[in-house]
Design a protein around this nucleic acid. Structure first.
Lengths: 210, 210, 210, 210
DNA sequence: TATGAATGAGACTTCATTCAT
DNA sequence: GATGAATGAAGTCTCATTCAT
């Protein structure tokens, strides 16, 4: 199920009107762009409002503060990412591991392409938590890791649940890092790195007879 | 040889006197702490100066601006990291791959323990470059990757130089990410993750008969 | 028509409300005083805001930076000065030259009395342009000179347009300088200098049968 | 005799050694350039010292503060200007007025060319005095005006001393202003303005049968 | 005497957020 | 509800001048 961090304090009110819906989307879209271009700290709420053609006062009706915009984006990403995995695992429950890894990495790559702000948002979110001395896990429940662990457990029932979560964590983190890196390079290197990522994860999973 | 990004404009002058040396060290040490605690943007130059017990004017005598402090730290890290690798490769030129990976990951772990600001500094450095639209590679030449690639080439001469660099990149990025993650968790998980990282890299390198 | 240097970037927004109008006026008035008392560079934006009883943030809402305050004052002066001349020339189109000069110098004198900051502002404006390596004429179009040249051409049609502009420039600069000087002296000297200025300009214009 | 404001507090010590002499000259020369380029306030004492290749500490041995550099330059100018007039008046005691004006304006023009910082320095000096609420005349004794007044008195003994001083003031100020203006324009306009200045002053002096 | 590292008040400007309209 | 003018704490960095060496 999707992370429901969303309700607590992110939205001051449910956008009921079409206008509001559009504005919220516009704000999030613009914020994503600006966070990528200039970083979270260097992006002003006024800049977001201006570029989104939304009055600054309205922005604060939808989001109680700047952080809420970041969190809304993060949840957006988390949800999409989670659904991606669920779909993948349903389709590839029985597939050979090499095929699974191939499809999974490609899916992640597509996701990163579709959501260029993912990395910037995630990083900043973690920063905020470190600064606030909040354990990341308490607040941002990594659903994808849980989901992947579950998948692994089904493929090799001799692995216990804790071990699977460890493996899943390892995979998710490594893949995310390498994918992000691939986006900072030229197309050729990017494709090579993608292939390499697949090799890395496949070799790793074979160790566990998955 | 060590990365010499250092000279360009990091130090406004070479600290010639002991007092200055101490002050520079103090500033860097304090900055590292504060960047970890609160992040680069949230750390004020005044806070650094105050905690380092150095007048703000003196801080600006050593570093032309806030960014220079970040870069000085980064170079510090890069140099240490590079030397660590060189030493490792000398010692383990002939070691079995499992042993090499074991020692390498442990060394990185030790490095991360000794330099807790490494991650925060590196991330911010990349952010600055993205914002300034500078290619990371043009400015920060990743010496460790070059060094590791060289090592791999020597262990399996059938791999060409480009391939080795690709593999090295993959390893360095994955290991750094997983190690950093391990520091945000409790001791038990931390150790498990360390072991898992070794498994991951070992499996990967075996693919290449290294 | 009045100089419209004004719009380009002087005002961040058009003050629509009475409160804002008053604040802008207050800021300009206070700035004028302080520029006279201490010079432009020595006048801090905070001092202006404080004396004008306007929060510093509001000051920056009306004027993007310190320079904009200077430019707003300058345009204020330029416009008034220009209107003064137009009025004068309409009234004295047929007057004997001695009468014209008498009235003109008096009018300038009155203007200088009413706008004691004129000199300080103009000087600083020119300084800024010199430093920025901007040709004064490109930016600050001296409408008064044009207007006076036009008047002269009408009084003696045998003088060509270029010559008239040259004469006008000579007059405007000389009169301004002598008037400004007169303000730094005691009342007696001041009046003598005023009379002398009239003599100077009258003698000059008689040379050209104007 | 030259203005001797100089001794009171301008020089901390008489440069007795060649090295010191050179340094003082270098400082003054550099200061003149920088004051022209960037204005007095924007010129830092460190910039002067650096460009003059003199240690900042040494600069403060020669000049007690920044203002002293300005005053030293001013006195330099005043002296030169005064000598120029004395020489001129000796040579042209009997010359027809048109010739005298011609030579005088040319001489001033040459002076301005040789001392491009004259205007900037004089203006700043006056500013400082206004700010310090010091009457310009108390401190900067305008020797050239006195000298010119004396010359005029000799040419038309029916004019009393006060009147001559008034006329001299008028001339000196008007000529200086117009010459300075001429330097901000292209060569063609510059020469026309020079000619016009001569016309202006000649017409004026003829009024007094000088 | 000569040097230049050291000092810290203070300059300009920004920005998240509020709240009266 | 919608708006955007208003706020002022706080940030980065500069610079004239001193004084220990």
């Amino acid at each position: 199920m999707a992370n429901d961090l969303q309700k607590p304090a992110k939205m001051r009110r449910q956008p009921k009107q079409v206008r509001s819906q559009e504005r919220v989307q516009s704000i999030l879209g613009v914020a994503e762009q600006l966070f990528i271009e200039s970083g979270y700290d260097q992006t002003t709420t006024r800049a977001i409002a201006t570029r989104a053609e939304v009055p600054i006062g309205s922005l604060y009706q939808f989001f109680p503060d700047k952080e809420a915009i970041l969190k809304a984006l993060a949840n957006h990403y988390f949800e999409q990412e989670y659904h991606l995995f669920v779909k993948l695992h349903t389709e590839l429950a029985e597939a050979p591991i090499a095929v699974y890894v191939d499809r999974m990495v490609d899916a992640f790559d597509q996701f990163a392409t579709d959501h260029p702000g993912y990395r910037a948002v995630l990083e900043q979110l973690i920063d905020l938590m470190v600064v606030a001395d909040i354990n990341t896990l308490d607040t941002y429940d990594p659903q994808i890791i849980k989901e992947l662990a579950h998948f692994l457990e089904q493929r090799n029932s001799s692995l216990d649940s804790a071990k699977c979560e460890l493996i899943a964590t390892t995979i998710v983190k490594a893949v995310n890092e390498l994918l992000w890196l691939s986006f900072t390079r030229d197309q050729i290197f990017r494709e090579q790195l993608l292939a390499e990522t697949k090799t890395l994860i496949t070799a790793y999973l074979q160790t566990y007879q998955i």
